[in-house]
């Protein structure tokens, strides 16, 4: 079962297994977060809440909040804002983007899927674009705590796979806790409900089974209505 700890709780004497979310004091491992202990391999404490901090290679969903030539400033649901250089478009278009033209490519409020290129010591975050980067008018965006993203994805992608199949939707989960859902309205409503359910019950066991049960009973009801 899960073991919940609060900051300062003693976890172990095995200092060389101390991992993320822990600290070592006088030869003992203590918890650094209010969270759950993961004792497989490294001793880790997974926080129950907290803010997203970008790391290299993360795929995030961002929103353009400012244009400051030659960068777009992007909100990535983090204490740190990210920036995207306009040369990111050079791959698709040879010609240079002029000073006043940046909003023709990406305007304020546009949502993008991007990869964190690097984060420097001053916490300046640079983004790079992926092939399919623009989130158009279709679909919905939900924001949950980034600490719950692993549960939405599930063990080796089991949860997200089920969500996609049973809800008949395109679902994209970004590392910063933003989720993009695309599909028919009724399907999106269902997917949204399930995601919120996962987020609310993220730390409970047997969640995948419960979600499966919920989706099956929902389907039955819908078929029942048609008859």
């Amino acid at each position: 079962m899960y073991k919940v700890v609060v900051p300062g709780d003693f976890i172990s004497d095995e200092v060389n297994r101390a991992g993320e979310g822990t600290y070592v004091d006088e030869g003992k491992v203590y918890a650094m977060h209010y969270g759950i202990v993961n004792d497989k391999g490294e001793i880790k404490v997974v926080a129950l809440s907290g803010k997203y901090v970008p790391t290299n290679g993360d795929i995030v969903i961002g929103k353009i909040v400012e244009i400051s030539f030659p960068y777009w400033i992007v909100d990535i649901a983090s204490p740190y804002e990210a920036r995207l250089h306009n040369s990111e478009f050079a791959g698709t278009r040879r010609d240079k983007i002029e000073f006043g033209d940046m909003n023709k490519y990406l305007d304020l409020g546009d949502l993008i899927v991007a990869k964190v290129l690097n984060v420097d010591a001053l916490m300046r975050v640079n983004l790079t674009l992926r092939d399919e980067f623009k989130i158009g008018d279709r679909g919905r965006l939900i924001e949950i705590s980034h600490t719950k993203v692993p549960r939405v994805i599930g063990r080796s992608g089991s949860m997200i796979k089920m969500l996609k199949e049973k809800c008949n939707c395109f679902v994209f989960v970004a590392k910063n806790g933003r989720i993009w859902i695309k599909g028919r309205d009724a399907d999106m409503n269902l997917a949204l409900e399930v995601v919120l359910m996962i987020s609310n019950e993220a730390h409970t066991s047997g969640l995948t089974d419960r979600v499966a049960h919920f989706l099956d009973s929902f389907k039955k009801n819908r078929e029942g209505d048609r008859e």
């Binding site: 609060v6 203590y30 977060h33 129950l48």
Partner: peptide
Amino acid sequence: LAAAGIPMRDL
């Protein structure tokens, strides 16, 4: 502070 997920040494 602990509930906000802020890393702390102790309460």
